[in-house]
């Protein structure tokens, strides 16, 4: 059972839980299982083709899963997986 840490802004879509355990052997299976358990998370984690959104970062321990084996990254019972929202922005105006 890998443990998924849910970021604060998405907790209301996961039953107000800060962590959720998921039984899966690979990242893609785990994400789809997580979304099956908490469907409202889906639009934040998956694109219309049901792939993991490009701007969503998911770390296994301290490493981005895209730097491991991507969606094929194996997960163990002790794996801690963090979902990290993209935080960015900025003002509208043109530079002088």
């Amino acid at each position: 059972m890998a443990t998924f840490l849910i970021p604060t802004p998405l907790r209301k879509f996961a039953g107000n839980q800060s962590s959720v355990t998921v039984s899966a052997e690979r990242m893609d299976q785990a994400i789809h299982t997580l979304v099956a358990q908490h469907p409202d998370l889906g639009r934040h984690l998956l694109d219309p083709e049901r792939n993991i959104r490009s701007f969503v970062r998911i770390y296994v321990g301290d490493t981005d899963f895209r730097e491991l084996q991507g969606e094929q990254t194996p997960l163990a019972d002790h794996s801690v997986v963090s979902i990290i929202p993209a935080i960015a922005g900025g003002c509208e105006c043109n530079l002088p």
């Binding site: 802004p9 998405l10 003002c91 509208e92």
Partner: peptide, 22 residues
């Protein structure tokens, strides 16, 4: 975050990246 030389109004860029709840 700051908007240097610009009003404190949320921009389209801010909206595109915004998360709920925050």
């Amino acid at each position: 975050h700051s908007h240097p030389l610009h009003p404190a109004i949320a921009s389209e860029h801010d909206l595109k990246q915004a998360m709920p709840y925050f």
